[in-house]
Design a protein around this nucleic acid. Structure first.
Lengths: 109, 109
DNA sequence: TATATCGATTGCAATATTACGATTAATATT
DNA sequence: AATATTAATCGTAATATTGCAATCGATATA
């Protein structure tokens, strides 16, 4: 046990869950906010900005990259990260679609 | 270790992470979709609909309830669950705000 | 070439999550 | 009262996550 039964759910349900999970950590939300705020890409600045060890930040970046939400390119010694626009807007659409399936009805219970 | 350092993040970052985490599981997404689709509230029907044990569904419902996303009222022997409209729309706003802070710029890396 | 810097990876410890059988508490039904 | 039904909870096992020190690989600079 301790293993999600992905086979009993739809592709969409699994995909959405994976995307949400990738963002479901304050450090990863902070990283995304920093990347967006800095507009141009940043890299090891994240280690200074957030109060986490370099190894920990690198791990969080890896998860965001695995989920496709961000992309990184090597820039000399450092690595530059930025939002993946396609994945970002796709996720945005998917999420707003999900939330919009519920149309504010009077409390039923 | 193995413990998220919530103290170094803002209230908003932590709150958003908790809400996303509550939805970041295919079973909980499926539960929310069922509750929305059934319009009127449902209960143990979820156990039949999804292929998970009663104890597991109950646990997932508890997590969604803890996050405030759903609410449940006792209805005789069974329990009726439905979306919490306030929390739902608040989360919707919060998320769309988060996604909108990024305005599709040309790939920078 | 030697050294410094950056960031990924490895290995480890602590804690959290997922799932389920078994049990329990509460309300219905006979 | 005895039994059935519903859903929460407990206990347990397997796996995942979080975080960091230490190390490694690659590029830059002296």
């Amino acid at each position: 046990m301790g293993l999600t039964k992905t086979e009993i759910f739809t592709e969409e349900q699994n995909a959405l869950a994976i995307a949400l999970k990738a963002m479901a950590h304050p450090a990863r939300i902070a990283i995304l906010q920093q990347i967006i705020k800095a507009n141009a890409c940043i890299c090891g600045d994240l280690v200074d900005e957030l109060g986490l060890a370099q190894a920990t930040i690198s791990q969080h970046l890896k998860e965001l990259k695995n989920a496709g939400i961000i992309q990184g390119t090597i820039e000399g010694v450092s690595v530059c990260y930025c939002i993946n626009p396609e994945v970002w807007s796709a996720l945005q659409k998917q999420l707003s679609g999900f939330f919009n399936t519920y149309n504010l009805k009077p409390n039923c219970c």
